[in-house]
Write a protein that binds this DNA or RNA. Structure first.
Lengths: 186, 186
DNA sequence: CTCTAATTTGAGTCAACGCTCAAGATAAGG
DNA sequence: CCTTATCTTGAGCGTTGACTCAAATTAGAG
């Protein structure tokens, strides 16, 4: 793949795949459905991807990366910053957020690469929350800060999970509630 | 189905289906796999169930009911009671807990019956937590208690979700942490 | 313009899926 | 023991899935 047309087709396929995983689930994400949504034929798909799994993995990697934007920037974010960034992601990139949860649940049992990637990503996120928490609540014991940071990240995932079941769910309200709980507790 | 043999076969099939959804995911839950695991042939499966979906739905209904044991008992549980019951469920009935989350995520997009059942069940659970919270923290505003109760239920689901990705995750530690946060906050 | 590599086409392969069915085996009431 | 309802067998049906490929088309460097 080197010509412009190929790159554009690749993007169309990835966009269609992302949309399908979010809307129809993994079962509904067939080659036929992807090709129809992308306006492309199967042969063209297989000119650019080795397998259906490869296309899905590309989308999944993008989704995982998008959950934690700017992971290199190790700057001193506050817990509130991190929560607001998450709210922004979940509300503006709902498809990617849905893909993230769908794959975490469906892929972790079968696919070791996905499971490992999810776990490493989780640890990274927890670390950032933990550091922010230690900065803002210096009197808190390190163990307590670590436990709270992990609970916070997991609870945020619970919020995203619930948004899949109830699309009208108020993500921001509950995410900010978690923030308050994490900062005010004993 | 009336003979004893039929009822036993039915149970074998449901057990195999539950195990498969938890271990292999919905994709891996094929008629062939169910029948092998149950030690039964396809014809026998279809003598007892109208379709694969019917068997899966039976397992799903059981999983949903099991998340909230004894829902009729409207007794005055404490928040701690409810959390401990949940910890017990997630740790002793891990297969059912995994089925619950897998179906919530995979089924809510496609299947309206499952989505509705999940939502109603969610509301029921939130109500019980809300009532317990109002009893233990009477000074809390009703809105605040409602918000906290819902956040608590959603966070517990996040814990179950995380257990699927990381089977060694300490469910009890984090669930009890949530309890403390919910009771002590402002 | 020319030539090659990249891309698109779409009919077609093969395996696996959910599911059926007629025939044989087994259970239980009378 | 006989009869009838229930259960089991397993080959096989039609459909759909992922994927292939040779031929036609198009993009772009020289």
């Amino acid at each position: 793949m080197r010509y412009k047309a190929g790159l554009e087709t690749r993007e169309k396929i990835l966009t269609a795949t992302r949309r399908l995983i979010a809307d129809a689930g993994l079962d509904g994400t067939t080659i036929k459905a992807i090709c129809e949504q992308a306006g492309v034929l199967p042969g063209s798909f297989y000119n650019l991807f080795d397998s259906k799994e490869q296309a899905i993995l590309s989308v999944v990697r993008a989704a995982i990366d998008a959950v934690d934007p700017d992971p290199e920037h190790k700057g001193p974010d506050s817990v509130a910053d991190l929560i607001e960034a998450y709210i922004r992601f979940v509300t503006t990139e709902r498809d990617l957020a849905t893909v993230y949860v769908r794959i975490a649940v469906a892929g972790s049992g079968n696919n070791e690469e996905i499971r490992g990637r999810m776990l490493r990503h989780h640890e990274g996120r927890v670390s950032r929350f933990e550091a922010a928490l230690a900065r803002e609540r210096p009197e808190m014991s390190p163990d307590e800060a670590a436990r709270r940071a992990e609970t916070l990240v997991i609870s945020l995932n619970g919020i995203t999970l619930h948004q899949i079941v109830d699309p009208d769910f108020d993500v921001a309200l509950h995410a900010r509630g978690l923030l308050a709980d994490a900062l005010t507790g004993a």
